[in-house]
């Protein structure tokens, strides 16, 4: 346990001093403020854009539109930034050889994986909660609130996908070599999931649904039960990725 807290502390310190915290918190705050604002300003923005002399008529934006923007921002830019920021999570430590001394001091290799995951997850959760808080405050101020279904679960789905991404990234970094190996493999994995979803319509198990059905959940157009299943499956996948990462890392030549 000593090793875990010591290494977790080191990870968090690294995130602070290597600007990861600065980036994630400010981007989250920006997304939180920008999403409701963009939704609100959309008619005005479009009013200024004249397409072939015609003025576009846009219906008055609603409470839901703010969430549309929020989920758009987070599921695309947000995930890309998450990947970029944590791309070197383990690879960098391995490539530079900085893990050798801590391991020689008796740090368990399992602990390395778990502490790294925990630190990344803490940072992702903090940023996400910050974004939600700001977003919700702005949305309540700018729009007339209406009752929506499964708001918490919908937000949770996106968080879970972020957690899934981090676990896959960690696993990919253990398997590959080089500073960006993990990042490429994870990106490739996402590509495969995307192909499964858009071309083969493999919907029932696909974790990508966690970031594509959020608004549908709010408006009641998505099947809650199916998404709940996917959430459980994703949870299991996270666990599997971490266990695999630990098993492979244990036997890795340093």
């Amino acid at each position: 346990m000593n090793g875990f807290t010591a290494f977790l502390r080191k990870e968090l310190l690294e995130h602070v001093r290597n600007y990861k915290v600065l980036i994630l918190l400010s981007v989250s705050a920006i997304f939180g403020m920008m999403s409701p604002l963009t939704a609100k300003m959309m008619p005005d923005i479009l009013a200024n854009v004249k397409v072939e002399g015609m003025v576009l008529k846009v219906p008055e934006p609603t409470f839901i539109d703010a969430f549309v923007q929020f989920f758009n921002n987070f599921s695309q830019m947000g995930m890309a930034i998450l990947l970029l920021v944590f791309g070197g999570l383990l690879s960098q430590d391995l490539a530079k050889g900085t893990l050798i001394i801590p391991l020689s001091k008796g740090l368990s290799r399992y602990t390395v994986i778990l502490a790294k995951y925990a630190a990344a997850l803490i940072l992702w959760t903090l940023s996400y909660v910050l974004a939600i808080t700001i977003h919700y405050g702005y949305t309540l101020y700018l729009f007339k609130p209406i009752s929506v279904g499964h708001l918490f679960f919908s937000l949770f789905c996106l968080w879970l996908f972020g957690a899934f991404l981090l676990a896959v990234l960690l696993m990919a970094s253990v398997i590959t070599r080089g500073t960006y190996g993990g990042l490429f493999v994870t990106a490739a994995g996402l590509g495969i999931l995307l192909i499964c979803q858009t071309i083969f319509r493999m919907d029932t198990f696909n974790p990508l649904k966690l970031v594509s059905e959020n608004v549908a959940l709010l408006t009641g157009k998505a099947e809650f039960d199916q998404l709940l299943n996917i959430a459980w499956i994703t949870g299991a996948l996270i666990l599997a990725a971490l266990i695999l990462a630990m098993a492979v890392f244990k036997k890795k030549s340093i």
Binding site: E14, T98, I100, I101, S104
Partner: peptide
């Protein structure tokens, strides 16, 4: 054991 690798690499931000 106390081990000092040939080129010890540290966390530079500490």
């Amino acid at each position: 054991i106390g081990y000092l690798p040939d080129v010890p690499e540290f966390y530079g931000y500490m």
